[in-house]
Design a protein around this nucleic acid. Structure first.
Lengths: 217, 217
DNA sequence: TCCGCTCATCTTGCATGGAAGTTGCCCGCA
DNA sequence: TGCGGGCAACTTCCATGCAAGATGAGCGGA
């Protein structure tokens, strides 16, 4: 293949390598403690080692792997401390986000719609879609602040627990339904522009999220 | 030079390229709106294009440049919105940091020492050292939380204004002395474990920082 | 048995060349 | 004068080759 032709999906080789690695970091194929080799990934992803190296550098910056010179990339296991740090960070950002949303008064209906969409996925049992809808809800909340820096920091934080093996809802029966209700509480508080209730709903949701994540760990 | 020998400074070629670019982004050599070419940077930094490309990717992730395929890297001008976003992000993180420090009660003396060190640099007129001491103070405050994610997000935020041309203190006479006093107010409040005072001191400091940065813009 | 050394093998880091995309200039033409 | 096409120059992106660091197996000696 020619060196610069983008693939059929329109993605560059570097982006394909990044997506390839990310997918495997989050589905458990590349589990914590594993040592990855650029060469193997390159072969599996059908690109050369250069874009794989770039993708790994990015994964290192995002805290998913640690690169050891001339040795390879270690997939970092998720620690309890890390989960706590993530939830602390999320609490700061999401609390600000609902405060902002209550103040501006524009995000309520959008959030309620996101909850409804997520609720429709409750019966399907499709973890991936449910998880994606969860992301939509939270990311939408933070995006509504219009603060690109916070959005980036938030994405950084939220991606960490994706590395937890078997973090799907099946290991925590009933959690999915509970998530919907907690999201709805947040969305309704925002729609009613009740700051105190919104803050409390975020705190409750994140407390439960931490418990659930720590249990899965 | 052999392909893998680290330079005399012990840094890899990639790290040298990154430091090289960063230095020029922050001293105004690579000013907002400029188009950078990997080849030119590679020649100037005496490394090949590969590590320069990696460094630019990292700078893009950090929000300093934007890469356009087959065209080059555009140095992003700092916008008013961006400054506001940075200060919002800093406010969230630093407020949490002082709350945490007041609670734990361990960071006060360390912060006071950092203020004293910075005060000694006041007369020197060396912007770089004063700016570095400023960084020490704030970074120390955030590091004391022990939350690596917050430290990373904070570093991301704080680096943005470094791209403002002529942001040095000379353009804002008296600001340096004011900074010291505001830092001291924060440190003292933390030392006395007075949460309300610490929060207020942070708010004041960041308000003034925003005004100063917007004036420099 | 156990320790230490050598060496084959694996790994990355980086330089380089080529393919291909993008731009803007320049010239011809209406 | 104004416009459009072609082309040259410039750029990145990626594949590949090579040098050198890191590792672990296996052997020899005590």
């Amino acid at each position: 293949m020619s060196p610069t032709t983008p693939g059929a999906d329109g993605l560059s080789a570097s982006e394909r390598a990044y997506a390839f690695i990310r997918e495997r970091l989050f589905d458990g194929t590349y589990a914590g403690g594993m040592m990855l080799s650029e060469g193997e990934i390159a072969e599996a992803a059908a690109v050369s080692r250069t874009p794989v190296h770039e993708a790994l550098l990015r994964c290192e910056f995002e805290g998913h792997v640690r690169l050891y010179a001339k040795r390879g990339a270690l997939v970092l296991p998720v620690t309890v401390k890390e989960i706590q740090d993530v939830l602390t960070t999320r609490r700061l950002i999401e609390t600000y986000a609902v405060e902002y949303a209550c103040e501006s008064g524009h995000a309520g209906s959008q959030l309620l719609a996101a909850v409804d969409r997520q609720a429709e996925l409750l019966t399907g049992g499709e973890d991936d879609k449910f998880s994606a809808a969860d992301d939509d809800f939270h990311r939408g909340m933070v995006s509504a602040t219009g603060n690109a820096l916070l959005v980036k920091a938030y994405a950084l934080a939220k991606s960490v627990p994706l590395r937890i093996p078997n973090r799907n809802m099946r290991t925590d029966p009933g959690r999915a339904a509970q998530v919907i209700e907690e999201h709805r509480a947040i969305a309704e508080a925002v729609a009613e522009r009740d700051v105190a209730a919104a803050r409390a709903a975020v705190a409750t949701h994140l407390d439960h999220a931490m418990t659930s994540l720590l249990r899965a760990l």
